[in-house]
Amino acid sequence: MSSNTLKGKAYIFGDNISTDLICPGRYYHLRSDIEKLAEHVLEDARPEFASEMEAGNTFVIAGKDMGLGSSREHAPLIIKVSGCNAVLCKSVARIFYRNCINVGLPIITCDTSKIKEGDQLEVDLSHGIVKNITQDFEINFDPFPSIMTDILEAGGLVEYIKKYGDFKL
């Protein structure tokens, strides 16, 4: 990956942030209008988030079992479309993990417990390091499986298949 250091501010969320909290079912009718749907990103976890966050300068920091629940890809999609750089969490539910990669949203599992609201972070995807600039410490994380790195690098699964025409392992 080239330009693979992401910079931004931490917005803290808790454990068990379900896809219902990220992308509430009551906005079902907006699923074909992603920009509008994104106005409600994470609304039931933190109602003011969409208005507080700054596109291009935001990390979503969660606890354990991030993204549990439904398979709706709209959940990571609106996190990405709203301008979040990446999601950092202690652990992540399986379908959500796959979906993040498929929409081209980096999802990093690492120990997020010391990160505080508003901390300035730098995430180096290729070396697997989260730098907490505000508190001056580093957290390491494991690299993605190679197929996921390739999908992320292509910019998501649509672009990956367009590029390679098939899966390559």
């Binding site: 398979s71 709706r72 890809e73 379908i95 796959r98 979906n99 498929n102 929409v103 699964l157 649509v158």
Partner: peptide
């Protein structure tokens, strides 16, 4: 049988 997202 397993769940995945739309693009998968």
């Amino acid at each position: 049988t397993t769940g995945m997202g739309s693009t998968d």
